[in-house]
Design a protein around this nucleic acid. Structure first.
Length: 268
DNA sequence: AGGTCGACCTGGCAGC
DNA sequence: TGCTGCCAGGTCGACC
């Protein structure tokens, strides 16, 4: 489900509502999502307060008062909703001492939750590339990475060891704005064009955050609401509909097992 | 060693 | 109505 803008929106919602609150109880309805024994998971969280909430890639990090962390990867269909209605997809319920309740809902059960002392204990963080808004993620870094890669540029954008947080929706949108064909080999893109892509990576993600993300099917923010960026998508999910720039039909192809939406006329 | 592909799991929707 | 097949925002490990 959520890519960087959606996870960022969730993190901002949760920060406002949960910081300083104390976990009074953790109810695990589905052990499958945990990467440790249930008793260990619950013991590390109960009675601790929320020191801070942040994001790395597509993972939510809840810092606990004792210096440890609750790390949540919502994957495709995970949701973190405050004071929402419980349903059959509510896999884990976090209760706070003031009566606030945080639900972890997940239709497909791909999500992963861990309570760890050290973020290095989360394998995902050890392989993750730079954040797209970090200084380290520069046009020069992109050019260095692209030079040595023969795969299609769409695959590079989806590779989280190259850059964290970009998923299928925003990879398509970034390439559309960059007027770049998704199947173009990364090593065959000019330095000038790489600068353009770099600029649009940040621009598209920033706009999506400003609109609280995109809701295709399952995504909800921390208050259980849909994102508003969905209606602003130029190509994603729009096969056969007119390209907003030239009005020709948007095409769909499969790359790396995922749908890619693009305009064959505007993107070269 | 870089890169691709299927598996993981559930459910909604289109087509027949 | 009910069945089948396809599709879905992510990640990892097996394999070429």
């Amino acid at each position: 489900m959520p890519e960087l803008p959606e996870v960022e929106t969730i993190v901002r919602d949760l920060s406002k509502s949960l910081e300083g609150k104390i976990f009074s109880d953790v109810i695990v309805r589905d052990d499958f999502l945990l990467r440790q024994r249930r008793e260990d998971f619950v013991r590390r969280i109960r009675k601790k307060s929320v020191a801070g909430i942040s994001r790395r890639g597509k993972a939510v990090i809840i810092g606990l008062s004792c210096g440890s962390f609750l790390v949540i990867q919502p994957m495709m269909t995970g949701q973190l909703v405050i004071d929402g209605q419980e349903d059959r997809h509510s896999r884990i319920v976090f209760n706070f001492s003031d009566g606030t309740r945080l639900l972890y809902n997940d239709q497909r059960r791909f999500g992963q939750l861990r309570a760890v002392d050290d973020l290095k204990d989360v394998p995902y963080f050890n392989i993750l590339g730079p954040e797209p808004f970090a200084a380290q993620f520069s046009p020069a870094y992109m050019a260095w990475a692209f030079r040595r890669s023969r795969r299609p540029v769409k695959n590079s954008l989806l590779d989280h060891t190259f850059v964290a947080g970009i998923g299928n929706i925003y990879a398509c949108e970034i390439l559309f704005r960059s007027a770049l064909a998704p199947r173009r080999q990364a090593c065959r893109i000019s330095e000038e064009k790489i600068k353009t892509v770099h600029r649009f990576i940040r621009e598209v993600l920033n706009e999506a955050i400003a609109h609280r993300g995109s809701s295709m099917r399952n995504y909800r923010d921390g208050r259980g609401r849909k994102g508003a960026f969905h209606g602003r998508l130029a190509v994603y999910g729009r096969e056969g509909l007119p390209c907003p720039r030239c009005r020709r039909a948007v095409k769909r192809v499969i790359q790396a097992g995922r749908s890619t939406f693009y305009c064959g006329h505007c993107q070269k």
